[in-house]
Computed example of a mutant assay.
Amino acid sequence: MTEFKTAPPSGPRRRMVMTAGAAAIAALMGLTACGGDTGAAQTPAPENSIAVGEYPDYYPADYKDLVTAAEKEGGELTIYSNTDQENWDPILRDFKKKYPFVTKISANNLDSDEVFQKALSEKATNASSADVFVSNAAGAWADFAARKGMLADYTSPELAKLPKFASLLPGVVAMSADPQTIAFNTTLLEEKPESLEGLAAQIKAKPADFTNMIGVRDTTGAFGFTMFYNLTEAKPKSWDSIATILSASRPETSSGTLSEKVLAGEYKAGVLVTAAPAFPVVKNSNGLFDIALPTDGTVVIPRGLGISADAPHPATAKLFQDFVISQEGQQAVLEGGLSSYREGVKSVQFALTYQDVVSKVGEDNVIMAPYESVPADKVKAFTDRWQSLLK
């Protein structure tokens, strides 16, 4: 692999690296637009088989009454989410197959906290328009769900068939269980970073080569805080690796930004990057960009889904929740690049199931982020320690 032995780029050199990276990204975008791809991914996977009008025998006998009620709601559904359209496409496609009377679904892509801010603002003015909320901001979900009158009281018949972690809060279920990864530029690192400890070791070996060359998810945001707080709570020794990593890092606000800068060569690696938005970059990078699950602690953050108490289309929203966590729905979740968690889902290229994560790093090294608020004193203690380690 190529190694840059000189000091990290700055001034004109840095601009040259970023310009080259931008050109690489533009070229890759062009390949994507023209249908270019890597490996076997050039052949699209066949669409999922959906059983229209058929339901598992564990569904209630009167479930078709719910379907009838949904048919009378006009075939519309509005989702407030922090999920990319690329992730939604197979899910919405297959839900419409399951229920052909649903013809119009709006699913926006807000920031993880903005989903709840928008809902609360509309509630205050009696102008609620959302049917379903989707976000992976664990702490924000806990605060939101505790408020009266925000979430519908609905228990899906699918819940009993799911792992315990899928029931996140009263009225909130896991749509997916998304792992956080180390993203890296394959030409800039001497070896694949299989763990946080391994990445830290590379930095220690040649610290001058890594100054400001690691991107790290900013913990001032709710999602970044959730990642690293739960990692350090479950694996206190990870602070040793984090201290070394932060000494070479700059914080970034999103997995998308981290992925772009790693691909462009502005960073050698990004910590921690959500697998779902990283996989399209892996897919289209011609081997320049890759991700790894840290074997010394992989944080998995469920993507919560709940139904609005003021849903304009409540029956349709219930059908949607049931579908997303069903076997059919979880297959679509995986096809969209999010991590499904039901047993028996067929593998999809450039996507990971929860079972894949467990198989790779071991169950003891999977850290499932709980949906709960963190006391203010613990937030301060973590934040103070984190900030003291940034150079």
Results as ranks from 00 to 15, higher is better:
11 G>F: 03
114 E>L: 12
95 F>N: 04
178 D>W: 05
350 F>T: 04
319 L>D: 03
333 V>T: 07
51 A>Q: 10
49 S>K: 15
68 T>F: 14
126 N>R: 04
295 T>M: 06
330 Q>N: 01
124 A>D: 00
140 A>L: 11
61 A>F: 12
229 Y>D: 00
40 A>G: 03
87 N>F: 15
345 V>P: 06
215 G>P: 06
310 D>C: 00
325 I>F: 01
379 V>S: 00
321 Q>E: 07
323 F>L: 01
153 D>H: 03
322 D>P: 00
195 S>R: 09
67 V>Q: 09
173 V>M: 11
264 A>G: 14
82 N>D: 11
62 D>H: 08
286 N>P: 07
294 P>Q: 10
59 Y>G: 12
116 F>Y: 14
6 T>S: 12
104 K>D: 14
247 S>L: 01
252 E>P: 01
91 I>P: 04
16 M>Q: 08
309 A>S: 01
69 A>P: 10
263 L>S: 06
189 L>H: 13
47 E>T: 13
284 N>L: 09
325 I>Q: 10
25 I>T: 09
298 T>F: 11
182 I>S: 11
143 D>G: 09
152 A>S: 07
3 E>A: 12
319 L>T: 05
337 G>N: 05
41 A>H: 06
384 D>C: 05
10 S>W: 02
286 N>K: 07
181 T>P: 07
125 T>L: 13
188 L>F: 11
170 P>Q: 05
200 A>W: 14
182 I>F: 12
158 E>W: 08
107 A>P: 06
38 T>I: 12
350 F>C: 03
328 E>G: 03
181 T>C: 11
292 A>R: 06
111 D>Y: 12
49 S>Q: 15
332 A>D: 01
129 S>W: 02
346 K>M: 04
326 S>E: 04
220 T>N: 13
78 T>K: 09
238 S>N: 07
34 C>P: 02
17 V>C: 00
143 D>V: 07
222 A>L: 10
320 F>K: 01
202 Q>H: 09
72 K>L: 14
350 F>S: 01
146 A>Y: 03
389 L>F: 02
204 K>D: 13
321 Q>R: 03
343 E>W: 00
79 I>A: 05
188 L>N: 12
129 S>I: 02
230 N>C: 03
185 N>S: 10
132 V>N: 03
155 T>G: 05
1 M>V: 08
365 N>L: 01
265 G>A: 07
149 G>A: 02
197 E>S: 11
87 N>H: 10
141 W>Y: 07
344 G>L: 04
236 P>F: 05
199 L>R: 09
273 V>L: 00
85 Q>S: 15
218 D>R: 11
316 T>C: 02
139 G>T: 08
135 S>W: 06
180 Q>C: 13
269 A>G: 10
375 P>G: 01
217 R>S: 06
130 A>W: 09
202 Q>N: 04
167 S>H: 13
50 I>L: 04
50 I>E: 02
68 T>N: 15
57 D>W: 05
337 G>F: 00
334 L>S: 11
29 M>S: 07
346 K>N: 08
98 K>L: 08
162 L>M: 14
303 R>P: 03
212 N>W: 06
297 G>E: 13
365 N>P: 02
233 E>T: 15
124 A>R: 10
27 A>V: 14
